[in-house]
Simulated assay, not measured.
Amino acid sequence: MIPTIDLDPWLTGTPAQQATTAAAVDAALREAGFLLVTGHGVSSAERRTVREAAREFFALPAPVKQRYCVSVGGRGWLAQGAEANAYAEGTPSPPDLKESWTVGADAPVGDAAIDAFWFQPNRWPSAEAPALQSVVEPYLARMRALSDEILRLLGAALGQGPSFFTDHTRHPTYTLNINWYPGVSVVGAPEPGQFRIGPHTDFGTVTLLDREPGLGGLQIDIPGEGWVDAPFVPDALTVNIGDLMARWTGDRWRSGRHRVLPPPADAPEEDLMSLVFFYECDPHTRVSPVAGPVAYEAVDSSEYLRSKLEAISM
């Protein structure tokens, strides 16, 4: 259903092995917009240290965390109730049951209007969680480099050449959300229709997810099957494509619809943390389909992404 793709043949193999890997990726993304990748080179120790440092921050009292509170699209702490992702697809819902620490691209391009939103300086709780910056910054750089490599693979899978997408990621926007999904003693009992993250598709090109398995975990909406639990492979990263990539491919590859279940009734104190890297493209990239069955109108990437972020803001 959701295949596991080893990146090593793409990174170090022969042209024939690279072509085989690209074909497997194309087939996977046509089905559900998701795949698992191994051979990515990001160690379990790197991911574990990010979680440990983030847990130190999330364990702080709410008034302390409030010093770093931001709205959706900002850099810092997103409190519970800040967003409801189901609104991105036009579905009213209660707010998502999570907290997030958010960082992202922060190297300015020199255009004040662009820099003010897309390249805001990252904030760090240096006094309260001193390890967070030192482990998150290198992880952020690793995810950006890996995302570009995956985009090169996707360019080949689409038959457009490896640089087709990365020609538009010379100074891209991107965000890392460290999502904390605590139990009901922290978030309260779920309301009807309330999720840790409501049903939605991501907005950008590719998302790279490092997740923990759980009863109240990730589900994927598979065409013809409905909601199914996402497969978990230790040390694999989950990759899904977002709306901009779906538009770029004219729905040859569908944006992967998904949700994160609320704390389960039989394990109400289940506590999970996900590292979610959202990759996009250079600001104001013009995205129009080059393949596939749907002739989407061209969109400005920044305007499209901004509209989606505004939609989920509570």
Rank of each mutant, 00 (worst) to 15 (best):
K65G: 04
L261G: 01
A291N: 09
R170T: 15
S126N: 14
V103S: 11
D115K: 06
E46K: 06
H171D: 11
W77P: 00
S147C: 12
F165S: 05
A265C: 07
R211W: 02
F165E: 01
G76S: 06
R144T: 12
P234G: 08
H171L: 06
V260R: 00
G90E: 07
Q120S: 14
F195V: 00
D148S: 15
F277D: 03
V184F: 00
D6I: 05
L237I: 07
E137A: 11
W118E: 03
P262L: 04
Y304R: 14
V186M: 05
G33A: 12
T91W: 06
V294I: 15
P9T: 11
A141H: 14
W10R: 10
R47W: 01
R30H: 09
L305S: 02
E297I: 05
A32G: 15
P264F: 03
Y304V: 03
R142G: 13
I178T: 04
L7S: 09
V206Y: 00
Q160S: 10
E212S: 08
I222M: 09
G13A: 10
A79Y: 04
L176F: 05
A295V: 05
T175A: 11
T12Y: 12
W124F: 13
V184D: 03
D282M: 08
L305G: 00
P130H: 15
H284S: 12
D202W: 00
I178E: 01
L153R: 12
P9E: 04
L218W: 00
G73Y: 02
V206M: 02
A116Y: 03
L11P: 01
L154D: 05
G110W: 10
V186H: 06
A157L: 06
L218I: 06
P9M: 09
D221E: 15
A54M: 02
G226I: 04
E191N: 10
L275R: 05
V206K: 03
V206T: 10
P223C: 14
G13W: 01
G110A: 10
M1H: 15
V64R: 08
E149W: 05
H284R: 14
I178L: 12
A129Y: 01
L78V: 00
A141K: 13
Q219F: 06
A22F: 03
E89V: 08
I222H: 14
P138A: 15
L153V: 10
W101I: 02
L140N: 08
R254P: 00
D243I: 01
